[in-house]
Design a protein around this nucleic acid. Structure first.
Lengths: 342, 342
DNA sequence: TTGTAAGCGTTATCAT
DNA sequence: ATGATAACGCTTACAA
């Protein structure tokens, strides 16, 4: 346990002033003789000197840290997003403070408070939907806020990066309709989430285009986490006229749904066609391999980091950047033509 | 974009000195009249004041940030570990700086450098195995370093939290031997990783206990990431006397291995029994449900955070804390009795 | 090319 | 109970 050397120690040991040391630390900041530079560098080396970030940040606001506020990192989708965001950020010399909300807006508020205190330059978040005043304040403070995956409709001034949920919901549903299904169920996130809302809108559009009747009973909003997805599945199965096809619009819910189907002895795709929003490697290893909507996580991450670092602080209100990347419908074997024979 | 109010602004607006404001900010630090306190609080509220962490950190070394340096967050095991670590840390008011190495020791060195500059109080890491001097230096600097999941044998002075890899490898292998298998293959991490090393040691022990011959050809070390696991599987299958059972000792490799088996038309568990170190929900949904070694991620996370925050800086060398939690062998259906009939 | 000194926002030690 | 004021480690005019 040794005491950390400061810039002053280095200066003294090298026989120069702190200003000189600072200049060799930040190259562009001023002239320094080549000989002095190497000498100072040597001293830093031998002393094991490392400039202290906290002290640096004190001078100018630090565009050196990004907040990443996710619902839940144990969800593979968010985990991979985090992985990519971290890599993108590091490539630009930016560090990432990771926080989770567990979909709890109270926790979210707490996290945002510490993010404010840290004066992070940008925040990439999957917002719970509440805490709107805080988000506004953050922006007013000059923080670059980017919503990823979902957004808050009543906060149009915030940048958003997500897939085209409407189109994804539409095309998934259309695929099922094209296979002859007339009773198509959809399990989606909470009604407050734009993700769920847009996917359901796309779903409705597809039904209409296919001339199918819309039945509100077939539309289930379930919490993102926990067993809610499974409960929704059970409810659908217990309908007097149950669906023959399912769009499961959330990663965390898929496993629950599949468990229920399996327990109920409902075969995929024989008795039930399934499409899921998910892209884990294991979807391909299932029996049968699952037809999925693949989200381009790399793109989501790249755009998010880019926006969060854009320093668009002083822009006119109303012109938020909205980036919608298209998701890919990957057809495998969990969707089959409807068996007309009962 | 408004300028952030400082403690001085608050003091002025409240008609008091900065010292008083500081005292209401840090309750135990000194007396302040109840009336003044509420007035100051009101002013802070209306001004939207938030104390700046960077300035605080400048004074005393900040036990307020933890570095979490993982190989890869897209790996579900690490992702869930990250999730738990973040929650544990937040519960104690600590923030987490997330970094990844991609198993690249050069990247690791860079990340460690920034962690040093940030003066984090502790680091939880899955080390690549190199950069030993840097780890030592970190400790000398008083940083609480904790290796999780794996460790570096030549760095015995670092705290470690992991499952009992030896026992896990042993019991998994013993289970296969008990099912009559005599040719048991193991695919593990790189030989440099303690994780792989210990699991293989346990594997050997089990073979010996069962009176089975050890064949080095059945032991495959493969890189943690990429398709290496699949290649190892192929190599094993091409042996003149191929194994009838497999222990796959790494999360990321499992999917690759299963793909190869599937492509080769080798049925599980009919033609090949399989045990994997993995605990994603999907292992249960596979056909057949996979027999797994389940790692108690919660415990790993909790102990790691605890150690990383223990501030054991000044302890005598040599008495590093090593915590081994036991993993659970969950028997499902991917292990079957060896079919003697060829 | 190098050195001096004044901040950055906060806490802590004195006095008052 | 409150108020000046000196740190903390670094950057940056401005001087030399």
């Amino acid at each position: 346990m040794q005491k950390q050397p400061t810039i002053r120690d280095v200066a003294q040991a090298a026989g120069v002033s702190v200003a000189v040391v600072s200049r060799v630390l930040n190259p562009g900041s001023g002239p320094v003789a080549a000989a002095t530079r190497t000498r100072v560098n040597e001293v830093m080396q031998s002393l094991g000197y490392h400039p202290r970030t906290a002290a640096r940040e004190l001078k100018f606001g630090p565009p050196t840290t990004l907040g990443l506020l996710l619902a839940d990192v144990s969800n593979p989708f968010f985990a991979r997003l985090a992985d990519r965001v971290v890599q993108e950020a590091h490539a630009r010399g930016i560090q990432v403070l990771l926080m989770t909300t567990q979909e709890d807006d109270h926790l979210e508020a707490e996290r945002l408070a510490t993010l404010i205190e840290r004066r992070v330059s940008g925040i990439i978040a999957t917002p719970t939907g509440n805490n709107q005043e805080i988000w506004k304040k953050l922006q007013a403070l000059g923080t670059d806020v980017v919503f990823v995956d979902r957004s808050i409709p009543t906060l149009p001034e915030v940048d958003v990066v997500s897939i085209d949920n409407f189109e994804s919901g539409r095309s998934a549903t259309a695929l099922l309709a094209a296979h002859g299904h007339r009773r198509i169920g959809i399990i989606s996130g909470p009604a407050t989430s734009t993700t769920g809302r847009d996917r359901i809108a796309g779903y409705r559009e597809a039904l209409e285009a296919a001339g199918l009747e819309q039945d509100e009973l077939l539309i289930r909003s379930a919490a993102f986490r926990g067993a809610a997805g499974g409960d929704a599945a059970s409810a659908l199965l217990n309908l007097e006229d149950p669906p023959t096809a399912l769009v499961v619009a959330n990663t965390a819910q898929v496993t629950e749904v599949l468990k229920r189907l399996s327990h109920a002895g409902i075969a995929i795709p024989g008795a039930m066609s399934v499409i899921v929003f998910e892209d884990s490697p294991w979807t391909e290893l299932m029996t049968p391999p699952l037809t999925i909507v693949r989200q381009p996580i790399d793109l989501l991450a790249r755009h998010s980091v880019q926006l969060a670092l854009a320093n668009t602080s002083g822009r006119a209100p109303g012109n938020a950047t909205v980036i919608r990347v298209s998701a890919e419908l990957v057809e495998r074997s969990s969707v089959a033509r409807l068996q007309l024979a009962k």
